[in-house]
């Protein structure tokens, strides 16, 4: 069992590299890493240019690292999330439709090993991308702004990692439950929107994993963070993997 999981994990990693999935993610993270501090820094100038052409005067407070961090969180929790869903939605459903899943299923391989190996590759991909983004944002911010809390920023990235992991695990789980990648993608997108809407409400909404975004900012500012979204993230991931195994077990190739 142990060595089979290792074999599967290695296959997922090789596939991630050869299918350009890891590269795409790394480059997107690189983009966000550079663009977040840069766009925050030049925002007043951009607004000034727009203002001049429209005869409006914008008075802005001086930009700080806070604007860069806000951009960073926004980029990853919006476009970054959609791209994460896009990259993960085919992980199992794609193998169902091209027949390669049957290659694994006739061999003595446990379904949970297949799912685990995919989650393992997901964790690798997220860590790879966020490391790149953290380093680039760190370098740019230290250069552009007076003072940047590097260590809290790195710790906040752990929360971002959890955020993306939840999204990826939910997408992979859905991917194992449906027949087509696009269905998994749309389903996951729907769930993400529901959680985002919940998160905007008070009460139970404070348990939404999407709250991890605002917790990142709390953490950087030195406030204590709420454990609610962290606990709920764990529950969501375990729940979706559980459901997925339950449904996946009954899957039979059709046509």
């Amino acid at each position: 069992m142990h060595s089979i999981l290792l074999t599967l994990a290695r296959k997922e990693l090789t596939e991630g590299f050869r299918s350009y999935k890891f590269l795409i993610w790394a480059i997107i993270c690189g983009f966000f890493g550079i663009l977040s501090p840069l766009s925050a820094y030049y925002m007043p100038e951009v607004l000034a240019i727009i203002g001049a052409s429209q005869n409006i005067m914008f008075t802005l407070a001086e930009v700080t690292y806070r604007d860069a961090v806000a951009q960073y969180v926004k980029n990853f929790t919006q476009i970054g999330s959609i791209i994460m869903i896009f990259l993960a939605m085919g992980s199992v459903a794609g193998e169902k439709s091209d027949g390669s899943l049957q290659f694994l299923l006739v061999r003595p391989v446990k379904l949970r090993a297949i799912l685990l190996s995919k989650i393992f590759a997901l964790v690798f991909m997220i860590i790879l991308g966020l490391s790149i983004a953290t380093i680039l944002t760190g370098i740019y911010s230290l250069y552009l702004f007076s003072g940047f809390p590097l260590v809290p920023f790195i710790r906040a990235n752990m929360l971002l990692m959890l955020y993306l992991l939840v999204l990826g695990v939910v997408t992979i789980s859905l991917s194992a439950m449906v027949q087509k990648p696009i269905v998994a993608g749309l389903g996951s997108l729907g769930l993400w929107l529901v959680f985002s809407a919940l998160g905007a409400l008070g009460g139970i909404g404070s348990y939404s994993f999407t709250k991890l975004g605002s917790e990142m900012i709390h953490l950087i500012e030195g406030f204590s963070i709420s454990w609610k979204p962290i606990v709920s993230s764990m529950i969501i991931m375990m729940g979706s993997v559980g459901c997925s195994l339950f449904v996946f077990k009954r899957w039979e190739p059709s046509n």
């Binding site: 590269l23 690189g30 550079i34 840069l38 680039l136 740019y140």
Partner: peptide, 16 residues
Amino acid sequence: LLVAPLVVLELILKLI
């Protein structure tokens, strides 16, 4: 100089 890396990343993608 600050924007150059973005252009380089985009070019790498396009070349691939």
